[in-house]
Design a protein around this nucleic acid. Structure first.
Length: 271
DNA sequence: ATGCGGACCTGTTAGC
DNA sequence: TGCTAACAGGTCCGCA
């Protein structure tokens, strides 16, 4: 479910509920996530004050004086906000009870997400250490992508989805950015020109920003405790439109598979 | 070093 | 209608 815009929206929703507040308790009903939820997480979290909620790539970080809680939503993870006690349903694996009475309930049917703890600098955690720049980091430039892609023959789509190159570009938005930039997803990364990478950087930022803006409108529902809407209401021009006409030129969009992921492109607009 | 395919899970949908 | 297979938005890991 979550690409970067949904993670960002989640972080923005969690921020006012958590920052400056103490965690009263954590209840783990199912510890078998992608990695086991540490058995001593309660000792780390109970009574500690959350200093800051932030995002690094698609990881959600809760900084405290004792260390940092690292949360990933995986493919199907999300939070619900409870204002009163409520019996946990299927897949509602973890509750974070916050001072003041709010409970953040973590739901993850596929259990690809994670709840991990790191003492000290979270940036040195193995999951975070090798991550590339954020999409809006000034370090993400066409020159950077062009330099990094030399001698890399992976499809440019796989290159853009590599978290060590740039974080936050998931399958949907990789498809969309390549469409917007007019670059065919299957081309080797090292055959993509500087000018094309320039268009890709612009497209990635523009598309992610639009999706976050669209997600922002759902913040109200989220904070009210409703289930977070499954998908952002941005108009997707490529992803999920295989076989349909290209909105720019009318050609039939092609659907293929790159790195095992569903890939859609326009054979005319994307070269 | 790079690149590929498998792995982790369950729910939903397409196809027979 | 019911069964089965394929597929789904992430990303780590092991192996060639």
């Amino acid at each position: 479910m979550p690409e970067l815009p949904e993670v960002e929206t989640t972080v923005r929703a969690l921020r006012p509920l958590l920052e400056g507040k103490r965690v009263r308790r954590i209840e783990v009903r199912e510890s078998r996530l992608r990695w086991p939820v540490p058995a001593d997480l309660g000792e780390k979290l109970d009574g500690v004050r959350v200093r800051q909620v932030r995002r690094r790539g698609k990881y959600i970080l809760l900084d405290t004086a004792r260390g940092t809680l690292i949360v990933h939503l995986g493919m199907s993870g999300r939070f619900r906000v409870l204002h009163r006690s409520e019996p946990a349903q299927k897949h509602e694996h973890i509750d974070l009870l916050v001072e003041g009475g709010v409970t953040l309930r973590y739901i993850d049917p596929r259990r690809f997400g994670c709840f991990l703890w790191v003492d000290g600098d979270p940036g040195q955690h193995p999951l975070l250490r090798a991550l590339g720049p954020e999409p809006w980091d000034e370090a993400l430039t066409a020159e950077y992508l062009h330099r990094l892609s030399r001698r890399r023959r992976v499809p440019v789509k796989a290159f853009l989805m590599d978290g060590g190159v740039v974080v936050g570009v998931g399958n949907i938005y990789a498809n969309e950015a390549l469409f917007a930039a007019g670059v065919r997803p299957g081309r080797a990364a090292d055959r993509v020109s500087l000018a094309e990478y320039r268009r890709l950087v612009v497209a990635i930022r523009r598309i992610l920003e639009a999706a976050i803006r669209a997600g922002g409108t759902t913040l109200r529902d989220f904070a009210a405790g409703e289930d977070q809407p499954g998908y952002f209401r941005v108009e997707l021009k490529a992803y999920g439109r295989g076989g349909q006409p290209c909105q720019a030129c009318g050609s039939t969009l092609k659907e293929t598979r790159i790195g095992g992921r569903s890939t859609v492109y326009c054979p005319l607009c994307q070269r």
